[in-house]
Amino acid sequence: MLTQPYLEDYKHDISSGRKNYIYLTLVMAITDFKMKYDNSALGYLWSLVKPLLMFGTLYLVFSVFMRWNVENYKLHLLLGIILWNFLAEVTLNSMVLLEGKASIIKKINFPRWIVVIASSLTSLLTLFLNIVIFFLFFIFSAPPFHTSALLLGLYLIELYFLSVGIALLLCALYPKFRDIHHLWEVFVQLGFWVTPIIYPISIVPQKYHTFIFLNPMARVIQGSRQAIIGPPGDFTGFTSHVLIISVAAVLFLAGLTLFNKLSPSFAEDL
């Protein structure tokens, strides 16, 4: 019979068990990432090709057929799509992955938020790769580089917490109300059009600006554009960050609270 190595390190394992949440989160993220692109010929490349194809289509329509009079429109559009896609992906995927993990959740007691964080990490990797591609475009179009571009880091952190906060809220409700997935899909579409992603903010009548910029995503996108591509504007300013951060913090804390409250019954509802 095979010898069983647990004899000698029996004690050791017990003390260290259950503290490896970080490792669990990473393994889960890697497994999700592998599964997502598993049966496709281009594999991981899809995570890069997808936003580029979307960009190509929109660019064709809005730059060749219709013409916005915006300097570096290409860069504005690409950055907007990349940032918006991250929010859309994190929020929508987390529900899909929660459903996919039902068989594990029904059997193993582990903190459920790990599913949401793992799914967000997968999207985060895609986001970073996309940002690299954006900078390749940036170098080729050669607008002057401003040091304010470093603000992008702050915007990405804000974007991350905003997205994960929403994802936690949605996932908390999802097992009891499945329609929240469909509802949110529509909402993401709506959000894509009320956020200045493909159109310049200048075409929107001034009186609506206040409403448009109540949306923290509009501020994240417009602000990072002003910081990186220019021309500089007031969306990189202090008030804008305060607004984004407070919305993100409220959503994140609300999401976490609701999630912790409802997740103990996930094993029954999923």
Partner: peptide
Amino acid sequence: FLYGALLGMSR
């Protein structure tokens, strides 16, 4: 690896 991690093991 996933199952091991779910059981609380390290890499």
